[in-house]
Every structure is written in structure tokens, then in C-alpha cells.
């Protein structure tokens, strides 16, 4: 079997998803025999942006250098996978969108002179075509491993789009909303995280992103009322959605 040529890039992000890439290869060491990595600055010293089968990109796009890099990556990769919520939706740094950029930068960095960011925080697919989206903050390493195995074998995953609640019920996890009366974003959040938070008795905070193929503005408003009654303020909900679903929130349709 020919090795799958992989490159892993990091844009604006916390690197937590890169850790998941490394963990997933530790859990599935056999993968290493079937992939060759040409770019992964966190893992190796020699890196070059070469032609690859799949480019895995972590992080959101926040300046023109990153846009250029991403375009180059797209040109040289047969497939591009957006890794983690930052790459898929923008991620936590989207919280600064709409705020005064200078104030935000000054509040965060002692030497703001080195920070070059645009006012917007872009998801990967708003800059280049993306073939796979693996959301999560951090990404579920098992989902990534499953995808890599299938890519090595010459195929791909068959996507199934459903909300987190399906996953909870299949696992028999007691419902945080109905049994505990706690706010949970599970009903409007895309599944495949393994229902991690509800399995520890806490509400989902939506890190896999809003189920925007189903939830339009009207339904989101209805849902907001429900979580508000459960004790989550509108501001908190807005913050969570902005932090984990920025890109899809701004595309949300009003009809449907």
C-alpha cells in the first residue's frame, strides 16, 4: 500500500487539536506505517509545503499571511480537512469579532506590536474549498483516526448528520435537560463527540458546532427561550454560539 502523504498545518488556535492528532497516532501506531508526514511543525524539524494527499489544517484564518498559506496548501493538497472547531467555525477567538480590535489585543498581549490580525475570524472553508470537517474543541481524535484509516484504504467516511441527543440516547446517558433541568446545547449541536460532557452529567456547551442544517433563526430563538428557562442567560448562550459556531451562525437562514 502506498503511503498516504499528510501535512498538518496550524493557524490561529491553541494546538489542542494537534495534540489530538498525536494522541490518535499513539492510540493507532499502525497508522504511522501508512502515512508519511511532510509538514507538522509541532512534531518534526524539517518541514516543506509539498504536494500531499491530505492537508490537515488546525485553526482559524485571521490574517492575510494565513490566507496565502491556506491557498498554497489547497493548491498542493488533493484533500483538505479542517481540524477542530477553530478551523471549521472560527473557534473561541471569534469572541473578539465585533469588539474593538486594539482593546482586545492590548488586553491579551504584553507586546502587541507583533500581533497582526484582521477584524474578522474566518473559518477555513470561507477561504478555500474544504473536503472534510472535523469539529470539536478539541477534536475527537478517534474521528480523525477513523478518517485517516479510510483515506489510507482509498475511501472515506460516509457522513451521518444528527444532533448530540441521538448519541446520548443510544448510550443511555441520562438527559441533562429533562432529568436535571440544566441547560444543554446538545439538541442543537452536531453529534460525534462521544457525548463526553453529558456522560459526566454536565450540559453540552456546543463545541461541535451548531446543527445549522436543521436549526434556523426561528428554531434557535425557540431553543434560546428553553435554555433561558433552564438558567442560561441570553448573553451566555450568545457567547457559546459565537465561540463555537461563529461561521455557521453568521450564515444562519431565517426561513425553514
Amino acid at each position: 500500500m502506498r503511503k498516504l502523504r499528510v501535512a498538518v498545518f496550524k493557524l490561529t488556535s491553541c494546538s489542542g487539536c494537534l495534540n489530538e492528532v498525536i494522541y490518535s497516532m499513539m492510540v493507532h501506531p499502525e497508522l504511522l506505517r501508512y502515512v508519511s508526514i511532510s509538514y507538522f511543525t509541532e512534531l518534526q524539524d524539517l518541514n516543506a509545503v509539498e504536494e500531499v494527499d491530505v492537508a490537515i489544517v488546525e485553526g482559524s484564518v485571521v490574517n492575510s499571511e494565513q490566507e496565502e498559506l491556506v491557498r498554497l496548501v489547497r493548491e498542493r493538497a488533493k484533500l483538505v480537512a479542517a481540524l477542530g472547531t477553530c478551523a471549521v467555525f472560527g473557534g473561541v477567538q471569534s469572541l473578539r469579532v465585533g469588539e474593538d480590535l486594539r482593546t482586545t489585543v492590548l488586553a491579551s498581549y504584553p507586546n502587541p506590536d507583533f500581533i497582526r490580525v484582521s477584524p474578522d475570524v474566518k473559518s477555513l472553508d470561507s477561504v478555500v474549498r474544504v473536503d472534510y470537517r472535523l469539529p470539536g474543541c478539541p477534536v475527537n481524535g478517534e474521528s480523525l483516526a477513523r478518517l485517516l484509516v479510510k483515506l489510507v484504504l482509498g475511501g472515506t467516511e460516509t457522513p451521518i448528520h444528527e444532533s448530540l441527543c441521538s448519541e446520548c440516547k443510544r448510550k443511555g446517558i441520562p438527559c441533562v435537560v429533562v432529568l436535571r433541568k440544566e441547560p444543554c446545547l446538545g439538541p442543537v449541536t452536531v453529534a460525534d463527540c462521544g457525548a463526553l460532557c453529558p456522560s459526566f452529567g454536565r450540559g453540552c456547551y456546543g463545541c461541535h458546532g451548531l446543527n445549522a442544517l436543521v436549526v434556523d433563526k426561528g428554531r434557535l430563538e425557540e431553543f434560546s427561550r428553553v435554555v433561558e428557562r433552564l438558567g442560561m442567560s441570553r448573553d451566555d448562550l450568545r457567547a457559546l454560539l459565537k465561540a463555537f459556531s461563529h461561521a455557521s451562525l453568521s450564515r444562519l437562514s431565517s426561513a425553514g
Binding site: E162, S163, L164, C165, S166, C175, V188, V214, R219, E222
Partner: peptide, 9 residues
């Protein structure tokens, strides 16, 4: 169905 969020519970 206006209040349904399609969660499939």
C-alpha cells in the same frame, strides 16, 4: 414543527 430543533430525542 416551528419549535422542533430536529434533535431526534
Amino acid at each position: 414543527s416551528a419549535r422542533c430543533v430536529g434533535c431526534a430525542n
